[in-house]
Design a protein around this nucleic acid. Sequence first.
DNA 1: TCTGGGGTCCTAGGACCC
DNA 2: TCTGGGGTCCTAGGACCC
Length: 424
Amino acid sequence: MGELFGLIDCNNFYVSCERVFRPDLEGKPVIVLSNNDGCAVARSAEAKLLGIKMGDPEFKIRDLIRRENVRVFSSNYALYGDLSRRVGDTLGSMVPTVETYSIDESFLNLGEFNGREVEPLARELRDRVHRWVGIPTCVGIAPTKTLAKVANFIAKKRPQYRGVCDLRSSRVRAELLPTVPVEEVWGIGGASAAKLAKIGILTAADLAALKPDDARALMTVTGSRTVYELRGISCMPLELVEPTRKGIAVTRSFGAPVTSWTAMREALASYATRAAEKMRRYKVAADNLFVFMHTSTFNQDPFYSNGASARFVATTNDTGEVVGLAVRLGERLWRDGFRYSKCGVMITELLPEAVQQPALWSELDRERREWAWKAVDQLNAKLGRGTVRILAAGPKDSAWKLRAEHLSQRWTTRWDELPRVRSR
DNA sequence: TCTGGGGTCCTAGGACCC
DNA sequence: TCTGGGGTCCTAGGACCC
């Protein structure tokens, strides 16, 4: 009984999201920038043709942007997250078993189509997502996840496939795998590709032919799994239950260098607030906290980088306690006279919310605080993040906050930013 | 001259993903 | 002047145990 996987992947997802509400940008070069308007993280086909690479810093391509009239957007995660959810709902309307793999990709269980025609379903899926949500996609079909990723890659790169590639047939695989560079294979990054090149392995077909034991010696067990998967032997099942979070991190580069402890404390307090919010959302609590801060590594400024961690007396997801410890740790790390570029708050040991150790204060007090923070979460969900916040987090418009100069509207998640339609 | 044999747990670092 | 953020998994090696 063989398995069958589909992988549906949104094309240039962030760019496609922007185009849903700006159809005039169809056919034009468009890019979306990372936080702080730092690097290009999504590019339309036209922008790729201009030579803009993934991760190119904006200031280095500024001339190109002006010359070629590239449309630029800051990251609008409220929009992308909501459209991603709509894509997922649409997939669920046609395929019962879907693993949401990332914001723009899902694996589909197509087991029931084994030995049957599946391309019409794949085409209807693409079509429906495009009609219902407005996002273009490609679909790869294969007996393993890794091959489904390869199939998706081929569907994306080669127009003659019109967005769907089926790699079930070993004859088709024998024909196509030699045309796929090994570094495009899921799980093969730069380091592994370099090792493989040294022994003459340059394509997905070369890697499929490698002895699994040799792959293991070179790239640990994950490498041997990849070889098996490329041969059509499935080692990676669909993951349908969301695994419990192992860690939470809130880290940001500053919109402008931070030189005062007041600003640093505000940043730490806001990030700790976000971390506590995330913990409450995932119903987990922190056992420990790690805080770090550093200056820029890209310039000649005097360099300083340091981190510190501490345990909580009792596991907690109480904003007050998380902020308190984050600020105390930050105080220990702070040195005057540096231009800080980034700081962060990380939790590496998360426990289920339910198994909290008894605390120093009474259970009644703890319960009241839990209710209070839940109320704050609800208010902020309704009125916008940071509407109710802890004083130490500072004003909403501090200079260290993210730069986002090309932000589009939150078209689908804020009443006051809905698109307006005029008729005559 | 000879110097055990397993275990577990933790951490740091590497590699990879989107 | 300006270079993202948040995850997972795996392994080696050290500490510690009996």
